[in-house]
Simulated assay, not measured.
Amino acid sequence: MKKIFFVAVLSLGSLTAFAQDGEEKAGEATQVAVTQDDFSEIETSNLPEAVATAVATDYPSGTISKAYVNKQEQYKLEVTLEDGTTGTLYADKDGNWIEL
């Protein structure tokens, strides 16, 4: 009698363990919104001379394709080099590089 009870408990326990593997839990979808950090696009001709000089000095083969500014007078610059690589640089109004 003990053996039959022991076998029944083991069978029931193993069946429930396998049943849990087949269940899939519905996960919540996470949505990430990327903002431009309050930067608004400006003409590259409207950049301060210090910023344009900093790009010309540190990246002589680079051209500024797009420029953005925020309320703190920080500039986001999309720079393209001669070899076709592009990158984003951040500078303050005095032409100092910053990290955002």
Rank of each mutant, 00 (worst) to 15 (best):
E28F: 13
E82N: 10
T88G: 04
G87C: 11
T35E: 02
G84A: 07
K2R: 11
D92G: 10
D83T: 12
N70T: 09
A67W: 00
L81K: 08
K76F: 01
G13P: 01
K76H: 04
A56W: 01
A29Q: 11
A33R: 08
K25H: 09
K71N: 13
L12Q: 08
G95S: 06
E24Q: 14
T16G: 14
Q36D: 14
D58T: 10
T35S: 11
L81Y: 07
Q72D: 15
V32L: 08
E73N: 12
A54H: 00
Q31F: 14
L10M: 15
V69S: 04
Y59A: 00
T85F: 14
T88Y: 06
Q20E: 10
K76V: 00
L100R: 05
T16F: 15
A91K: 05
V51M: 04
K76S: 04
T86I: 09
F39I: 06
T88A: 07
A29W: 09
V9F: 10
P60Q: 07
Q20L: 14
K2V: 12
G13W: 13
D94K: 10
D92W: 08
F5A: 11
G87P: 05
I98Y: 05
A54I: 00
Q74M: 09
D37Y: 15
G87V: 03
A50N: 05
V69Q: 05
G27F: 14
L15F: 08
D58W: 04
T53H: 09
I4M: 05
P48T: 01
S40D: 05
M1L: 13
E99G: 00
L77P: 00
A17K: 01
S61F: 08
K66M: 06
D38K: 09
E73Q: 15
K71M: 07
T57Q: 12
E99W: 03
T35Y: 03
W97I: 10
V55N: 01
F18E: 05
A56T: 10
L77F: 02
S61A: 15
E24R: 14
A26I: 14
A50K: 04
D37V: 11
F6K: 09
W97Q: 12
E24V: 13
F18R: 07
G95E: 03
D21A: 10
A29M: 11
P48L: 00
N96I: 05
L47C: 03
T35R: 02
K2I: 14
L81N: 08
G87L: 11
P48K: 00
A91I: 03
V79L: 06
V34H: 05
E78T: 10
D83I: 11
G22R: 15
L10F: 11
Q72L: 15
T63K: 12
E43H: 05
G62D: 02
N96M: 09
T63A: 09
E23F: 13
